[in-house]
Design a protein around this nucleic acid. Sequence first.
DNA 1: CTAGGACCCCGCCATT
DNA 2: AGAATGGCGGGGTCCT
Length: 336
Amino acid sequence: MPFHSLRGLASIADDRYLSVMRTVAALLYDDMRAFDYGVIVEIWGVDRSDLEVPRFELRLCSAGARSVRLNPSAWVDATHDLSGFAGADLVIVPGRFEPFAPVEPDVIDTLRGAFASGTTIASLCSGAVVLASAGILEGRRAVTHWELSERLFDDYPGIVPERDMLFVEHNGVWTSAGTASGVDLCIELIRRAHGSRVANIVARCLIAGSHRTGDQAQFIKNPLPSSTGRKSIAGTLDWARGRIHQPLTVADLARHAGVTPRTFARNFVATTGTTPGQWLIQQRVFEAQRLLEATDLRIDQIAGRCGFGTSTMLRRHFTRVVGMAPSAYRGAFQRT
DNA sequence: CTAGGACCCCGCCATT
DNA sequence: AGAATGGCGGGGTCCT
């Protein structure tokens, strides 16, 4: 199965391109989080070509190609030294348990070089500190684990701080809040490069929720569906997804749930981490992605079927959420 | 692109 | 008291 080429498609607000992404270089260094290592290997290191997922070349790069010590304790062998960053489509920097400990100058230089050459760069958890110390986050929106936010943003005032996000992208640089949200970030990277169909397959393999978007809060007060109301939030979400082609409003959802809009919105945020209106838009965009990939419907027909009244509305929200226009998305990902 | 009306979101407070 | 709810206002976003 050929790779879809994204060359020539602009990422958000920048001329940096998310290229085809088949070579992924991960930084290995001492004290790195075993979980982050696991995420990287699980996402890009497992051959799922039998499920029509592109095969990736995963390079595990450390200074001098030395073995590194994971935390909690394990040793991992590198496959490349730092020259493995060259020519990669994505460089990914995992977190450490001592995030502010100094990093070898070679690593910083190599990261800067990769960034300067236009490579997409992503950090997991406290890996954002390494990006910051390389100057890569200067002037960019970034997020990190909530326990590190204050110090990171104090130490590097040039960063545009984001706090209530799971992950964020700014001009080809991606940062994620930590641990589990790294999975969400990695799946989103795959979605951008290979489409939501492939991303959903990978998410399914990981038994991960494939629809956690970056703009959700890091804290979800009540992660289990509350059944205290007449009908659960989850039930209302299913109901709404089943009629996403209709012009639903937040008031409609509240009515279905049997509570006032104020209470509904409050419970909704506590349960899902996002607001009802944003969730609706997100669901409509998901449906639009599905239709763009799987059908030949015109853009205005798709707008009607996913609940956007007009193609203008579809284009506006789609571009904001996905990072490219609907037509470009179809050109890259439509199954023929 | 702009305008203005509808809708959404959130803090605040009273009520249950 | 403490928790959950619902009403209200205004500032922001969305939509026609």
